[in-house]
Design a protein around this nucleic acid. Structure first.
Lengths: 171, 171
DNA sequence: GAGCAATATTTCAAATGTCAAAGGTTTACG
DNA sequence: CGTAAACCTTTGACATTTGAAATATTGCTC
């Protein structure tokens, strides 16, 4: 058995012994975290196997796909939740693969704009379609009304978190 | 403005133009992902600032705290959703910091067991208390009944995902 | 007891991630 | 004009992550 198959079990054991009604927020958080990780790992595996791409690359290309004129690296960083320093290398590798172009506009030479190449657009279109299908498949057992409800309520959680951050980071 | 303050905005822009009733699973997934990332980053920031620890280290110590007799590295890997190859270096660094001990039992020399030191126990106890408080704080605006409901429904999502994995990975 | 499958951990290469600091460019102010 | 402040990207050090391959040890079988 390869290591990749040994992976996931369950982080929630941490609060196994939780008393009724207490630490609900902690319980919810651990369940969100493990579920998100589970889905991420599955998507990562499929992206890799079927397209030879990584999840951060997919995220980044998704943004560029919506902005055909390209985006500045800083803008890309914000939209993908990838740190600035990280975007550099990410775009670099995508450029090496011929999926992305980098250019500096005449107006402001501080700026670097990245945009998808033809090849990049084609690859992303295929990945996006597959990606959506994977999710529909994975969540296939969940009632659509529950999906909608979860979407709303998690939005509430997100707002609450945003209102209680220590550092800076807004929406 | 330092880079760490520039960070997060919102990944959900990807589906800005989504038609009503379509791609609900994708929408939900993106919201889960961005919310989880938001909370993770906040916890990471606080762990770092207040305790000089990282999130994976916290996860790992949480498991060892519940098993005072220690755990084998493979067992640790499964419980923390950290891959096997990863546990090695993680434990190594914790040992360097005097928070964890490693020893090989007489019975089976393939095995390495890790356990918390006295110092490790004390540090973790402090971190755990703070951690729980942070979560209660961050989710402070969310009604407790919603929290409970989310916990149940996300459990449903998790089950569904587990039933539709391509590789191996169970619960 | 030699050989082989199973188990447990380590190692490796490549990519990603955080954070901090340094590099150029542009803008604005005195 | 000249220079400081602001802006955008890159770089660097280091930790983490994945996936796969390599090691080491044990247990089983013939």
């Amino acid at each position: 058995m390869t290591e990749s198959e040994s992976g996931i079990v369950d982080l929630e054991i941490i609060v196994q012994g939780t008393q009724e009604g207490k630490k609900q927020e902690l319980r919810l958080w651990l369940r969100m975290l493990s579920t998100t990780k589970l889905i991420s790992q599955e998507i990562r595996r499929r992206l890799r196997n079927e397209f030879g791409a990584t999840l951060p690359q997919f995220d980044l290309m998704a943004q560029l796909y919506r902005e055909r004129d390209g985006l500045r690296l800083g803008e890309l960083s914000k939209r993908t939740m990838v740190t600035n320093g990280n975007v550099t290398g990410l775009v670099e590798r995508l450029e090496t693969d011929g999926l992305v172009l980098r250019e500096t506009p005449d107006g402001d030479r501080r700026v670097t704009v990245a945009k998808l190449t033809k090849k990049g657009e084609e690859l992303f279109a295929a990945m996006a379609a597959a990606h959506e299908g994977w999710l529909r498949d994975m969540m296939g057992d969940v009632d659509p009304s529950i999906i909608a409800e979860l979407w709303r309520d998690i939005g509430g959680v997100k707002s609450s978190v945003n209102n209680h951050l220590s550092g800076a980071a807004f929406d």
